[in-house]
């Protein structure tokens, strides 16, 4: 028997392992479908219970299996997806209030607080910070090749200088 609390958690998680391996493809596929359901920020009212049903698991098993496979709980995953969508919309120039509602938050205050805690800047400041970057319409600002990133901020500065000269 596992002696510590961590040991117990690991013991529990390893038993979910067997479930996925045994049910294999179908279990994984169902879990992926449930994850897609949670990723859809346009339907913010999908409950964890509904997602669990999609995965054909009880809520209890769903939350634990999901966390073992995806490294975060369904709730954490959904929040992260919403904030990523919010970043994208802010980058496209939508107002903070519109973005907040669009990604399924009902209160501007809790949206801004959560955004600031996870992203490090308030939504408005995040949007302002993008103005100095290169802008690709309808998508996030980025240099032409992501591999340019390996050169760090200096490489991007060089690129931006070249772009300004054009």
């Amino acid at each position: 028997m596992p002696s510590s609390v961590i040991g117990m958690v690991r013991f529990m998680r390893s038993s979910y392992n067997d479930q996925i391996t045994r049910g294999n493809r179908r279990a994984l596929l169902r879990l992926c479908r449930a994850r897609e359901l949670l990723a859809d920020v346009r339907s913010p009212d999908v409950s964890i219970e509904a997602a669990a049903r999609e995965a054909s698991l009880s809520s209890f098993h769903f939350i634990r299996t999901f966390a073992a496979v995806f490294g975060e709980t369904p709730h954490q995953f959904r929040t992260r997806e919403r904030l990523t969508a919010a970043q994208r919309l802010l980058a496209c120039g939508h107002s903070v209030t519109d973005v907040c509602l669009e990604v399924g938050f009902h209160s501007l205050g809790s949206f801004s607080t959560l955004f600031a805690r996870k992203i490090g800047l308030s939504p408005a400041r995040y949007q302002r910070s993008l103005r100095c970057s290169v802008f690709v319409p309808d998508w996030t600002p980025h240099p032409p090749s992501c591999l340019l990133w390996m050169g760090g901020t200096e490489a991007i500065a060089v690129f931006e200088k070249t772009l300004r000269r054009q």
Partner: peptide, 11 residues
């Protein structure tokens, strides 16, 4: 890896 909670889809 299993002892660390990693989930395997193929043994």
């Amino acid at each position: 890896l299993k002892a660390k909670g990693v989930v395997f889809t193929m043994e």
